[in-house]
Amino acid sequence: MSFLSIQKLDKRYGTTSIFTGIDCEIARGEFVTLLGPSGCGKSTLLRCIAGLTDVSGGRILVDGQDIVPLPPQKRGIGMVFQSYALFPNMTAAQNVAFGLRMQKVGKTESDKRVVDALAMVELGEFAARYPSQLSGGQCQRVALARSLVTRPRLLLLDEPLSALDARIRKLLREQIRGIQQELGLTTIFVTHDQEEALTMSDRIFLMNAGQIVQSGDAETLYTAPVDAFAAGFIGNYNLLDACVAEALLRRTMTCRIAIRPEAIGFGGDIDAQIKGHSLLGNVIRYRVEARGVELVVDVLNRSAADLHATGTLVGLSIDDSAIREVA
């Protein structure tokens, strides 16, 4: 039996529907990501689970209990916000202790749990600092400690890394995932960043226009997109209409296809010309034209000697098993 069960959940503002008939099941201790573009309804869904936004219909069951009628205070849910939402008038320790204060936990017990929570996010020595004296990454770690210290049964993370720089983001996502696994805490993470979703999640729910279009583990989503949106959103798929694909592959195609850029290699019998390239660290992304079709090709950046200059004629090979037919 799943720990969190969302059943036919609807959210409307007046006549505008944000999402309709959302169904999903999440197991205890699972790290699930709601991934999708801005405005797809993922944050609203998260706020509905938290009780910060009313639902228009449907049920949300946590451990078999319908939490829709409960106020946010009674749901036992911890949440981390993109803006950190730390209380500026309180120190890091006071912020973390706030939830325990509301639960009327004794001072000795509260102090111990605050120290433990701050130690867990490696901010023990920053306990007496105010949020204005902390960096963005430190603020978000305090916010994480604050949401964990009350021992919630479900943790919600609403784009917690979006306001941070790339290096801190990477460090923090590893730290969040580590803590989540250590505590075995059921977690829902909202992001529009596919890399975050792919690296952190047990399962990803890909959302578009108020619908979950695909769900599965990172590999399934990456290698087997169900439609053009999924292929376009995850990875940098080459999306080709049937007639274009026929021109490229010289065989009859019945529908649109998606080819991953790394599934195309140099050294085949498809004549092509390099139109440009960009260096992405360990990968070189080429823009090539083959049989009148423009493609993106990713190859490992082994050495500068292997680099193909713009205008160079090359042969391409396409791995047949990597060609996905998409709706």
Partner: peptide, 20 residues
């Protein structure tokens, strides 16, 4: 300057009533 909505939401989720 303080983003009242997020602060209120955070306080609610930590168990505070609107008044508190």
């Amino acid at each position: 300057a303080i983003n009242i909505r997020d602060l209120m939401d955070a306080a609610h989720l930590l168990g505070a009533s609107t008044w508190k």
